[in-house]
């Protein structure tokens, strides 16, 4: 197992590269979902504001 993590002496380059790439994948998932959530919340706020104006 420790041999696996050692990666033939390239651990110091290989694992940061993998970590960074998966951080980028994770950021993309989270930021896209956040954008959609915020757009929905904003649309809902506007609808409520419009209703109150009309009343």
């Amino acid at each position: 197992m420790s041999e696996f993590f050692h990666m033939g002496g390239y651990a110091a380059y290989l694992w940061p590269a993998y970590l960074l790439t998966f951080a980028v994948l994770g950021w993309n998932v989270l930021s896209a979902r956040r954008a959609l959530r915020e757009a929905r919340a904003e649309a809902r706020r506007r609808l409520t504001a419009d209703r109150e104006d009309g009343a």
């Binding site: 994948l25 993309n28 998932v29 896209a32 979902r33 954008a35 959609l36 915020e38 757009a39 929905r40 904003e42 649309a43 809902r44 506007r46 609808l47």
Partner: peptide
Amino acid sequence: FFVAVLLVRLRAEVLRRERGAAWVKEVV
């Protein structure tokens, strides 16, 4: 993965642009 992320971001972008439209009321 890119296509999936693009689709989610596209929905957000479309929603932002269509704030006033009638259909938005139904989906949110």
